[in-house]
Simulated scan of single mutants.
Amino acid sequence: MQLTDVWFAAIAVLWTGYFILEGFDFGVGALLPVLASDDTERRVMINTIGPVWDGNEVWLVTAAGALFAAFPEWYATLFSGFYLPLLVILLALIVRGVAFEYRTKQDSARWRRGWDRCLIAGSIVPAVLWGVAFGNMVRGVRLDARHEYVGGFWELLNPYALVGGLTMLVLFVTHGAIFLALKTEGDIRRKARALAWKAGVVAGVLVAVFLGWGQFHGGSAVSVALGVVAVVAWGLAVAAIAAGREGWAFTASAVAIGVATLTLFAVLYPNVLPAVDPANSLTTTNAASTVKSLRIMTWAAVFFLPLVLLYQSWTYWVFRRRIGVRNIPAGH
Rank of each mutant, 00 (worst) to 15 (best):
L67P: 01
V141W: 10
A10T: 14
G17P: 03
G214V: 02
Q106W: 15
A161I: 06
W248T: 11
G324W: 04
N286M: 03
L156W: 08
D187G: 00
V44F: 05
G324S: 07
F216G: 02
Y18K: 08
V173K: 08
K198Y: 12
G97Q: 08
M137I: 06
V201F: 09
I257S: 02
S80P: 01
A181Y: 11
P278H: 08
A145K: 11
A64M: 13
A9Y: 14
V222E: 10
L87H: 10
L195W: 02
V170G: 08
A109R: 12
N47G: 10
V205L: 11
S223V: 01
R189F: 01
A254R: 00
A66D: 07
V302Y: 12
A99I: 08
A287N: 03
V291F: 12
D39N: 15
N271R: 12
I178D: 02
H175T: 04
D25G: 06
F172W: 05
G29R: 07
A254W: 01
R43E: 10
H147S: 14
A230L: 07
T284L: 12
N327A: 14
V132I: 13
T251M: 10
N327G: 08
L236V: 15
V228H: 03
D187L: 01
D277G: 02
L119V: 09
A242Q: 07
G165K: 01
A9L: 09
L60V: 07
A260Q: 02
G212L: 03
F153N: 05
L182P: 05
A243Q: 12
L268D: 12
A121W: 13
A145S: 15
G135R: 07
L307I: 14
W213Y: 10
Q312H: 08
Y160K: 03
L195T: 09
L35E: 03
A63Y: 01
G258A: 03
P51G: 05
V13Y: 04
A266W: 06
A99D: 04
Q215D: 01
D5S: 15
W74I: 04
V222D: 03
P306T: 00
F265I: 00
K191Q: 14
A63K: 12
T104Q: 14
F71S: 12
A192K: 02
I89K: 09
S293V: 15
A254S: 09
E148A: 13
T4I: 08
A161L: 11
V44L: 10
D25I: 01
A275T: 03
I94Q: 06
